[in-house]
Design a binder for these strands. Structure first.
Length: 787
DNA sequence: GCGGCTGGGCTTTTT
DNA sequence: GCCCAGCCGC
């Protein structure tokens, strides 16, 4: 698009009034060069420092530049100290990137920006300072999604609900949805509580929240929700932060959910210096609670807000912009922007649309296209394949392995989500916090020590009856006959080992201690003995974990960091094609972008259409828009006539989005050949592709690439295996059994589930010696009833 | 307590 | 068609 829409941003007060006192005081100082590099709209967005500002920044219009320059400007002009600026992003990656780029502008003083981070990391920071006001202790644990599901599973069991019909994961999704909308259990609309297990949704939500408090833990949603509650119930605390945050900046505002919106609005009500940057056309997270409405109603919430549109695109050719812009006009309810570029590029290729017979041929054709580009000297790093769903990645991986083409899959489980990392962290968590039951239960039988379900249930019951953590329960039970001899010895050794490791916390460097723990626990050995293909990779990951601990002062600092901030590692420097989902491509750019799988049902996704109707379709269309606008010079769209979905081959219909592309910016690659009675489309002749399968006698699965892929897949497919449990923090205080007297008396007749009837012959704290018919046993009083 | 088998179910993903 | 979880048999 080259036509410039006749739309001008509303005038805003420029910082120092020309000729005014401030301006004179500034003297004839030249415009700083960080401002000279901006276009007029960007500069307005940077210099309109006071009052609410909404920057509608289209794809590739310099959004991050505006944000970072704005911060640099606030600091350079002395409007705020680094510690008085709140800058929120959605991902750690974005936060890091921003910190880095601000650092380039202002130098080391960027270190003072204590409040640059994700919603969650800022939330946890605020919450730790005022934890007691919301019923937590400042050392509360942040549970990740996996821990939360385990907890919910347990509550579902406790309610006697059929776990198969009502899985914990589903409840987690439901509660997460409520939290995204800022709803505490009592706020959930009456109609919605029935959504789970015949009306028990809200009850379980309530129980879950209570349990979290007992565990002194928060889940991700609470980091926002509890901060909101903190602010609402403590106006003085809110006022303190409103005062502190002289200027607020929010990135990717179109992705905020209701909870984040409420959080921001509370804070912004103070100074009202809030600048939100976003693009309604790139809102693609509605399914996880993002509210485009937040961006659409900004002007209503902040009367007098200045709205600035950034429409000058610096990224893509006019064909790419034209195609994307035209496609997105099919959406209703937009704020409306039209991207344009001044860059004249007569050589630029139109957006290419091609078809293939099936997904395998699609992969072959794209593979050849990539190799052709590579031969022309294009870097693989500048090419990406963006898919709608991750199952599409497979055919590309397989093909690229055959070709020996190096690729990189972006996304998937993060480093700290891998089983071996979570296990190692669980050991460290228990050392730091013996009362961390979730961590304790995770590793109590990893590696296998013969402590099975029966023993764990005993520990569990005892812990619950005595209101103590499981570690303390273990300490007590190993002194009794409650547990079988084998398990008892194993458990006693484990408890002793933890006491030993804890004793060395101050004496040994934390990285060394971690190594000692992993060795002495037998955890490292477990993987050394494992002969499966991915075991070496896991050992590498463990080494990497220790290495990453080096950057931290202490174990404590490291653990706090890893729960919230640790990203997947990607020290991979070899040149490679990127394969990722459209969602994870947001914010990135490549010279060449391949967009396969544009078929009805897949893209737009049938499920989205079924679940969300027109709104869903529009979100899918925005996803298409995001995909096309990732391309700087070449965008190639593909669709297959046949695709295997859920194992079944289905013939498919081209995506409706194809017909929504403007003819003048698109080249349709006509079907060029046909083989054996069916059409084989594609760029050039890929017809032979169906016959160029690997020799059936050669084992393509033994190539190093394949093995690597298998290894990665196996590692990434890993789900933690430990079972759910609970944790009782205050129990720590009563963990020593000698403190409480038993309710039983010598000579009293008691009943025990396992040993039957007996007579109490001795009492030591809460431990009883009981003469059963099978002989005298030491048992804990919580295991017997009066008989 | 652990390994092997069977059946259900299957987008997108951050913190 | 494939993967994971949960169940069953040793």
């Amino acid at each position: 698009m080259t036509e410039r829409p006749d739309r001008h941003p509303e005038p805003a007060p420029p910082a120092p009034r020309p000729g005014g006192i401030a301006a004179r005081a500034l003297g004839a100082r030249p415009v700083p060069d960080y401002l000279v590099r901006l276009n007029p709209e960007q500069r307005l967005a940077v210099e309109t420092t006071e009052g609410p500002v909404l920057v509608l920044a289209g794809a590739g219009t310099g959004k991050t530049r505006v944000l970072t320059t704005r911060i640099a400007h606030l600091l350079a002009t002395g409007r705020a100290y680094p510690s008085q600026i709140l800058a929120v992003t959605f991902t750690n990656k974005a936060a890091r990137e921003m910190r880095h780029r601000i650092g380039d502008l202002i130098g080391p003083s960027v270190e003072g920006m204590a409040w640059l981070g994700t919603f969650h990391s800022i939330g946890v920071r605020i919450l730790r300072r005022h934890a007691e006001l919301v019923g937590l202790k400042s050392n509360f644990t942040v549970l990740d999604a996996d821990d939360a599901v385990r907890l919910m599973k347990q509550l579902i069991q406790a309610e006697g609900i059929d776990e198969k019909r009502w899985p914990g994961k589903q409840l987690a999704l439901l509660i997460d949805g409520w939290k995204n909308r800022g709803l505490t259990p009592k706020d959930v609309p009456p109609g919605e509580g029935g959504a789970f297990a015949g009306g028990k949704g809200v009850k379980l939500y309530t129980a879950y929240q209570e349990r979290l408090k007992v565990l002194n833990a928060c889940d991700f949603g609470d980091l926002l929700l509890e901060t909101i509650r903190l602010f609402r119930e403590n106006p003085d605390v809110l006022a303190e932060y409103q005062q502190r945050f002289q200027y607020m900046l929010v990135d990717e505002y179109q992705d905020t959910n209701v909870a984040q919106y409420l959080w921001l609005r509370l804070l912004a009500q103070g100074r009202r210096n809030i600048c939100c940057v976003g693009d309604d056309d790139q809102s693609i997270y509605g399914w996880r609670g993002a509210e485009v409405d937040n961006i659409l109603r900004f002007e209503k919430d902040f009367p007098g807000a200045v709205v600035i549109r950034l429409e000058r695109n610096y990224r893509s050719t006019s064909h790419i912009l034209g195609a994307a812009s035209h496609l997105i006009t099919h959406n209703e309810g937009r704020l409306g922007k039209t991207l344009f570029t001044d860059i004249a590029d007569p050589e630029a290729a139109k957006v290419q649309v091609a078809s293939s017979w099936d997904s395998e041929e699609e992969a072959r054709a794209i593979g050849e296209e990539i190799e052709a580009l590579q031969r022309q000297g294009h870097s693989l790093d500048e090419m990406a394949i963006l898919v709608r769903a991750s199952f599409q990645m497979r055919s590309f991986e397989e093909r690229f392995i055959q070709l020996g083409l190096s690729y990189r899959v972006i996304g998937g489980p993060r480093f700290y989500e891998r089983a071996e990392i979570r296990d190692a962290l669980a050991y460290l968590r228990v050392v730091m916090q013996p009362a961390d039951d979730l961590a304790f239960e995770r590793i109590v039988n990893t590696p296998r020590r013969g402590i099975g379900e029966t023993t764990i249930r005993l520990l569990h019951d005892h812990a619950r009856a005595r209101r103590i953590p499981m570690m303390a329960a273990a300490e007590e039970l190993v002194q009794t006959s409650e547990i079988g001899a084998k398990a008892r010895t194993a458990l006693r050794d484990l408890v002793a080992a933890f006491a030993r490791w804890r004793g060395r916390l101050d004496a040994v460097k934390h990285t060394e201690l971690a190594e000692i723990i992993l060795d002495e626990s037998g955890y490292t050995e477990m993987w050394q003995q494992d002969r499966s293909a991915d075991a070496p990779g896991r050992l590498d990951n463990l080494k990497e974990l220790i290495r990453s601990m080096e950057e931290f002062e202490s174990l404590e600092g490291f653990l706090e960091h890893i729960a919230l901030v640790m990203d997947r590692d990607s020290a991979d420097t070899t040149e490679a094609v990127s394969i990722m989902t459209l969602h994870s491509a947001k914010g990135l750019e490549f010279e060449t972008v391949f967009l396969p799988g544009w078929e009805e049902g897949l893209f737009p996704s049938q499920r989205t259409l079924d679940e969300s109707g027109r709104a869903g379709l529009e979100e899918e269309r925005r996803l298409a828009y995001v995909g096309i606008t990732r391309a700087k010079r070449r965008a190639l769209i593909w669709f297959a006539s046949n695709r295997r979905i859920h194992g079944l081959w289905q013939s498919t219909v081209p995506s409706r989005f194809l017909d929504e592309l403007p003819e003048k910016h698109v080249d349709v690659v006509e079907q060029t050949s046909s083989y054996g009675g069916y059409n084989v489309g594609g760029i050039g002749n890929y017809g032979a592709s169906r016959f160029d399968r690997a020799d059936p006698f050669s084992n393509t699965y033994s190539t190093p690439g394949w093995q690597r892929a298998q290894k990665n897949r196996a590692a990434s497919a890993d789900k933690p295996t430990a079972r759910p449990t609970m944790r009782v923090i205050e129990g720590e205080l009563v963990a020593k059994s000698t403190g409480s007297a038993s309710a039983y008396a010598i000579g009293e007749r008691v009943f025990h589930q396992k040993f039957g009837y007996g007579t109490v012959s001795a009492i030591e704290g809460n431990k009883l010696t009981v003469d059963f018919t099978t002989g005298p046993k030491k048992v804990v009083d919580s295991f017997v009833t009066r008989g």
